[in-house]
Design a protein around this nucleic acid. Structure first.
Lengths: 269, 269
DNA sequence: TGGGGGGTTGACGCAGCGTCAGGGTCAAGT
DNA sequence: ACTTGACCCTGACGCTGCGTCAACCCCCCA
């Protein structure tokens, strides 16, 4: 008769595993000897090897019991199900590997490659890192809400960078971000350029029915709030934009009069 | 400000997941409002999306925290490690799938295909199912101990089946297994054929030094014990073999005299 | 004023064991 | 007779990433 250690080593498993199989009723508890040790016969060895074979093949322990005394057709069905499960799992992991490959570049956290290229363009232009990071986080929010629209939006943003006014805008923003005083005159300039840009965009996009535009305010509110959280001076900028008739710099349509006065995220109760 | 539900749905995760990230310190607990509700700002949304992105890519939660504020080279290293892990995991599952494909045929539980063919041959010869199952379990024990020697042993076994004496042996065994009386005269015949077979084998294998043979008695003991456990009448057969000078029918070498009288597994304390 | 759909903490459950903790047992050496 | 070291025993927590109650609080609407 074998002890549990001998049994386990013959089958190539750990003692703990054997006891676990006892606990879940997969392997029947054997007789004990006078000192309470479990004593195993040859059939237990065979059973244990069968169990390990199935377990190594990816069969969940909870199903092994039924498989060991199932008729061949049931057995085959179960095998098929397990195999499908394994296949799906493999696909899941492969997808993960693809995604992880995308993450090699730091910026691409949660961002499609087009956006990463856009951010690199900003850096080339000389935009301060803090501002680029703010932009990146903003795009993360946008990508989460409208993942399919990103590739329509990015070309427009890239084109805007050919406009000297917008380059000027980013330069001024960078300077502001690197100083820590509240310099209202620069903010006024920023607001002016932004307002002009918004007007131009609104004109270009033609006479779209306001009700036709997505009524989903949350992402815009988040973008505004993100800016304010990153740099409280952004709140002044928001106010300035509102003075100029825009809900914020993130909304490409005029503020509706019926809206409550403060659209900022900070006021959502 | 967002509630936990709004935050979760924006990022495409469950409320429970968000709370879990709080618990393990992955996402900082936000301020509470007057009634104890968590209130989230835009940065929390961005953080959560980043977390989900990494988690979806297969990064364990325990590492995501460090990754989010790691320098690019550390980040890349970690990514590499994760990718290796995923790769290994995929290989494991692929191996499982291969193994599970092998299991399609019922007998092949823990057995190489050569053995399955051997067992099929036995069935063709007309060996009773109970005897075949006994053989199968025996081979499971053998395969577990000497997996690499199986393909040397099976051809010899197949060749033996061309010997009319051995076919006779299996036939008698089958008859015995299907009756339930202790028929000593038939057992004697079985023992005689077995002893003759053992002698022939011993002669064929030449003058191998007894000390040269594997000293590993355990598998033989298990094989003997397996037979006895399957059918107590096998104990008589063991005794008969011992009378004829053989340790058992499983040992292809003569019993050493120095050995204790009862080699059976049942006597191991 | 009641009901439905939020939110809160706390705790168990899942798979398959690994890994202590805190004992007892066996075989062998001194 | 005593010690050592290698086993054995039970019981219980740990790991991963949440799902799923339970039991209670909060807000808004008809």
């Amino acid at each position: 008769m074998l002890t549990i250690g001998q049994l386990a080593s013959y089958a190539g498993v750990t003692v703990r595993a054997v006891r676990h199989y006892h606990q879940i009723g997969l392997l029947p508890e054997p007789e004990r000897d006078s000192s309470g040790y479990r004593r195993y016969g040859a059939k237990a060895v065979v059973s244990l090897i069968k169990i390990r074979t199935l377990a190594d093949a990816g069969v969940p322990l909870s199903q092994i019991g039924q498989m060991l005394d199932a008729d061949p057709s049931t057995f085959a069905e179960t095998i098929q199900r397990i195999d499908n499960r394994l296949h799906d799992e493999i696909e899941r992991l492969k997808t993960s590997r693809k995604q992880i490959a995308q993450l090699a570049a730091r910026d691409s956290l949660a961002l499609p490659s087009e956006v990463v290229r856009y951010l690199d363009r900003l850096r080339e232009i000389g935009v301060a890192e803090r501002v680029v990071e703010g932009e990146r986080d903003g795009w993360i929010l946008v990508a989460a809400r409208w993942p399919d629209h990103i590739h329509e939006m990015i070309p427009a943003k890239l084109a805007q960078l050919d406009d000297p006014q917008l380059v000027r805008l980013y330069r001024v923003l960078s300077e502001i971000s690197e100083s820590d005083v509240g310099d209202d005159s620069r903010l006024e300039e920023v607001a002016d350029i932004m307002a002009a840009g918004m007007a131009e965009q609104a004109a270009n996009s033609g006479e779209t029915d306001p009700a036709d535009v997505t009524p989903d305010d949350l992402p815009f509110d988040l973008l505004d709030a993100l800016a304010v959280e990153s740099d409280p001076r952004a709140q002044r900028l928001l106010d300035m934009m509102r003075e100029r008739g825009w809900g914020s710099w993130t909304r490409s349509r005029p503020e509706r009069l019926a809206d409550p006065p403060d659209q900022g995220l900070s006021s959502r109760s």
